[in-house]
Simulated assay, not measured.
Amino acid sequence: MNMPWFKLRGPVLDLEQLQRRDQLHPPAALDLCTLHDQRMVVLDLETSGLDMRRDIVLSIGAVVIEGGGINLGDQFESTLLRPAQKVSESVLIHGIAPSELEAGDDPAEALLDFMEFVGDSPILAFHASFDQRMLTRALKQTLGYKLRHPFFDVAELAPMLCPDNRPRQNSLDDWCTHFGLHVLQRHHASADALATAELALILLSKARHQGLQNLTALNQRLANWRQRQQANYM
């Protein structure tokens, strides 16, 4: 009797990793929790390049905004194990040497650790669509996990909340310079996450002064702002 061949699909995880994955918190619904009290995770990824279909996550940095400030005791940093990663032009930008990738954290463990760190909180990032898509693909390929957490783009919040007081360009460097923020190191996941969090604090303060007291209201303002932006380009 010929036995059928079965092709295994999805990542290979051990029992403990499967249990951790299945116990991850789903995202909390956006409610009326005040912006001051809302826990938010500010994320930055360093990747092997900018191709969202082929490039991979090399390092993760994140900090927490809560209680109207940055909780420096609640940070996340991990360089992932990528021993087969070839040296590319991106190394000149993020500076992650092949030796660091060869000594990195197991990707499944790093991603589980990160999602446990996130919990049910919303995520902020600068040019968030890139980080969201890269993280979504990494989680799916490595853990078989579907990311559902809402992302807020600080690169959208900044011009929306400061329409009459903004730099000519819309980069993280430009906004940090505009507000006099000192960035210790650029293109390093943890340092960029901290710089983004410092900028986000300024913007969240402006949001509250504009009558936006929670993420529900902020999300609605963003939706209206995007519609106006699209109408202006039509």
Score class of each variant (00 low, 15 high):
Q229D: 13
A195K: 04
K146E: 11
T136W: 01
L143G: 01
L184V: 08
F130Y: 07
R208T: 06
F6I: 10
L32D: 11
E89F: 06
A200K: 08
D44S: 04
Q229F: 09
N219K: 12
H209M: 07
E66S: 04
R226Y: 09
L161Y: 05
A128N: 14
G61F: 00
D106P: 12
F76S: 08
A62P: 01
L111C: 13
A231Y: 13
F76D: 03
R39D: 06
G61Q: 02
G68A: 02
L194R: 14
P98T: 09
G10I: 15
H188A: 08
L18A: 14
L8S: 09
R148V: 12
C33E: 15
N219A: 14
R21Y: 06
V118R: 02
N219E: 15
L32G: 10
F179L: 10
K7E: 13
A200C: 08
T136E: 09
S121D: 00
L72C: 03
P26R: 11
D74Y: 02
I96T: 07
I56Q: 14
G180N: 02
L30A: 00
S90Y: 01
F76W: 01
D164R: 10
R9M: 05
P107R: 11
H94T: 05
G10W: 11
L181Y: 11
S90L: 06
M115W: 03
K146C: 02
E109Y: 05
R54C: 15
F152C: 07
P98Y: 09
L35S: 03
T216P: 00
L50Q: 00
L124G: 14
P27G: 01
L184R: 15
L215I: 07
Q213P: 09
M134K: 15
F76A: 09
E102R: 08
G119N: 08
G95Q: 03
V118C: 01
L8K: 11
A29V: 10
A125L: 14
T216F: 06
L147M: 05
F117E: 11
Q213C: 12
P163Y: 04
G211Y: 07
G49T: 09
